[in-house]
Design a protein around this nucleic acid. Structure first.
Lengths: 280, 280
DNA sequence: GAGTGGTCTAGACCACACG
DNA sequence: GTGTGGTCTAGACCACTCA
């Protein structure tokens, strides 16, 4: 369909070959234009690489380095990188500085619904409380909480681990009004305090939840906890917990977009600790 | 906190100034390293620009062009573009070739739950059926549908519009087994056929749904329908519809990640045709 | 035609992991 | 130290929009 894609040598892991990518050029027929889209090189490259990944590579396998690949395809390294970035965004590649580029395993399905609507921290919900501080939330969160813009709230940091890898970092915002008994307790530090806040929260009647998902990029702290570079794409899940007619808590959880597929709904399709193997 | 950010001139929409960005350098104290992170220029730039957007620009306003901005901050255009890309990914900017870069309005909240669990195409669900073809689905979809890998299914293309803008493109996969009566009808073409398939589908008892969200990049056709360039980031919502103990249909909807915030749960926070204005 | 963002190049240096 | 991916530069040309 597209012009002349030289695809025969594919990648040829070892050999030094040259498989110049040709972008499809516009072809005008009379005055109407068909196939007028000059596909960018990096787009073609991405397609070619994606096919190669399907056919010639196993999960975990290391690709040739960027300089080699670029030379092999006859493009500048920046162009090749644009293709690799796309593939990484789609969860097909994993790149690590100082190490190399590997074929990523299929995305992990992580359930984002608490079986029955439930408070965070109830039972074994795969989250581990890590820290608790008191600070003024961002304007956006303050709006959701209906607190004053300079009012301090408890902030519980939690980490979600799946298959041994960190998949999400959460910041749970709890206004003091939601945990009135807490100050009475002599405040312990760090994780213990975090657990106290969660325990107090669970004493309230949970009347409902609210959830939103959007694309974001990891901040410096989230990135470190998720073992990614700052700016890495994340899926931001914002959950509001309602109790006694008001918003009792707001959770902002950032999931690694490259490795995660968020699942909703009763019977989940893969996982639930199921093996989910699909190695080639 | 960080080294010396020259932030005084901010952007100064008209004037020609130079505000070189300085990256924070590592500072070693004895042998332990504090502040060791040499923040990338583009990261700093992004932060500075984000603040400028908050304080000095209104929604819809046009930014200076990339060459000007790059010169003003004393960086190469590629570096500036890296910062802009991040901001666009976060939904704060909108860039259009041949036009310019504008400040994006806040993301639109689009509800991804059909109030009561319901078939697609029921009532006014903001989707407009556009097309219907018969083809072999991708391997991934075939696996979800439990069909043979070479079995053809009906593919209904629909477009979702919100606030006058296309926000999502859907491909609904319906195996023939789910619409047994359909062949009897003399097949009309395009939109009419699409509506027929939806109508037939709605005759089944819907037993449940299943939903997953992940990050993807727009293919050529989706990109065109969403008025974006190929490769644009999208939130892919995969929905399975269950009936009579099997998967009766699978919907793959791609939402513009830059302009959309997917909402779940009963009472939505913004929108529902509510104005949701926040122009400054 | 002028001006915009999008693509591409050929280099350079840096931070990091690992032997 | 060596090799990897990450950042950055200074240019060039292209595709698109709009007056």
């Amino acid at each position: 369909m597209v012009a002349g894609i030289v695809q025969e040598p594919l990648i040829n892991k070892g050999a030094e070959q040259r498989a110049p990518v040709q972008r499809s050029r516009r072809i005008r027929v009379g005055t109407t234009q068909l196939e007028s889209v000059p596909e960018p090189k990096y787009w073609h490259l991405k397609t070619v690489l994606a096919e190669a990944l399907d056919t010639d590579f196993a999960v975990g396998e290391i690709l040739p380095n960027e300089r080699d690949l670029a030379a092999r395809f006859g493009v500048a390294r920046a162009t090749l990188r644009q293709a690799l970035e796309q593939l990484e965004l789609e969860g097909r590649l994993q790149r690590r500085r100082g190490v190399g580029t590997t074929v990523a395993p299929p995305r992990v399905g992580v359930d984002v619904t608490t079986s029955r609507q439930d408070w965070p921290g109830t039972g074994n919900d795969a989250w581990q409380a890590a820290e608790c501080t008191v600070a003024v939330p961002s304007a956006a969160v303050a709006r959701l909480l209906d607190t004053e813009t300079d009012e301090e709230v408890h902030m519980v940091r939690r980490l979600r681990v799946s298959h041994g890898r960190p998949v999400a970092a959460e910041l749970l915002h709890v206004p003091s009004a939601s945990v009135p008994e807490l100050p009475a307790i002599e405040a312990p530090s760090g994780p213990a305090l975090a657990r106290s806040v969660l325990r107090e929260l669970q004493r309230l009647d949970l009347e409902g939840q609210d959830r939103a998902v959007e694309l974001g990029s990891a901040g410096t702290v989230d990135a470190r906890e998720l073992d990614r570079l700052p700016g890495a794409p994340v899926l931001v899940v914002t959950t509001r917990y309602f109790s006694e007619g008001r918003t009792a808590a707001v959770s902002v959880a950032t999931y690694r977009a490259d490795t995660c597929r968020l699942t909703f709904g009763g019977d989940v399709e893969i996982n639930h600790h199921g093996q989910q193997r699909r190695a080639s």
